[in-house]
Design a binder for these strands. Structure first.
Lengths: 207, 207
DNA sequence: CCTACCGATCGGTAGG
DNA sequence: CCTACCGATCGGTAGG
């Protein structure tokens, strides 16, 4: 399962909007604007202009501006949960699974869906209570994938630190790359993954 | 030099506002509001109410709302640069200096100035171009303290990964603690510091 | 999806 | 530091 086929399968199940449809295009532009200017500084007029419609027409697709933010976050978590699941399944040992997860998350953060991933990290406060509760549920599933792998490494004595703390540290470290990492800067995503793995205190033989 | 005397010395030099004065109290409340609600969602009326004055009176102290954000950030970096300098000087070996830096930054993020530190991380986009340039200058001095210590460890062969990358990872990991770490949760700041150090691939003998 | 428009709220000002 | 107020802009609506 590559990235494209995973996306297509989610679109078929109506869990993620078709990127080429009106809704999908709006969500992609919204993610970009929300990351660049922040949710609050982005006006409904900005959003409408980005997809070439009038501001009033937005409310044919979404009841409120906040609903757009929620949709960006929900679809992003759904897509990335599927991507992480594929990453876990692609590897055999726990150590390789961890590497695959780190690599996949770095790819999401610094690739095509990077805008939406950044929104997920930085625009949390702009969600309503109800939306927040729902997004958090999805987030728990995503996090459990990580905790399972880290927990296995911990039980095997390969990872000394607490899995929960390690995952929190990784979340911060990896999402922060969006503010400084540039793929064209001589450091490839594989190099970056290596550095993170090297920095993690995962002891023991090299494979 | 403890934290209090460092703060007093900065106040005496007019680099940081007296926390008990009108300006200092406003900046502290502003930091709290900006962290909780975000800069854009915080109105000048919120700010004024928090210190018990009318909204129009704010503009006697600051020309614009953005100037308040800038002041929060500038004073926070100044204070923390002094705190990190003291941390570096308090230790002898590079390894101990790194631990002191990590411990001091965790303390800043999760202590009394935590609100302002979170603002520094999450409200970057709301700064004007000019303010951003100025804050960035101060930030460079702060970062250099870290890079000096990490660079020494790298030259000694204790730290395998690139100092620049390590610092970026640490920035993300440590600042992210503000979203999940609670001092009363059974994990002390010293425990947390231990976990971070353990997670860093700083090889070699235990002292 | 558009036109035309609304009530509310925003940052900031003038004059004291 | 207050009173009184402004122009601009915001999210959202009605009716087509």
């Amino acid at each position: 399962m590559n990235q494209d086929s995973i996306l297509r399968s989610l679109v078929a199940d109506n869990l993620v909007s078709d990127p080429s449809g009106a809704r999908g295009r709006l969500l992609r532009e919204a993610a970009r604007l929300f990351r660049d200017k922040g949710y609050e500084r982005t006006t409904v007029r900005d959003l409408a202009a980005a997809v070439g419609i009038q501001s009033g027409s937005l409310f044919h697709h979404f009841r409120t501006k906040e609903e757009i933010l929620k949709a960006v976050m929900v679809e992003t978590i759904r897509l990335n949960t599927a991507l992480m699941q594929a990453a876990v399944e692609s590897a055999d040992s726990s150590r390789e699974k961890l590497r695959a997860l780190i690599r996949a998350e770095l790819e999401s953060i610094n690739g095509q869906t990077g805008e939406a991933m950044a929104v997920l990290v930085f625009e949390w406060r702009s969600l309503s209570e109800e939306s927040r509760a729902y997004v958090l549920e999805l987030r728990d599933i995503y996090e459990q994938l990580w905790l399972d792998v880290l927990g296995a490494l911990h039980r095997d004595g390969v990872l000394a630190a607490d899995p929960f703390v390690v995952r929190r540290m990784l979340t911060g470290a990896l999402s922060w790359t969006v503010t400084w990492y540039r793929p064209d800067g001589g450091l490839t995503l594989d190099d970056l993954t290596d550095q993170v793995v090297a920095m993690m205190g995962v002891k023991g033989p090299g494979t």
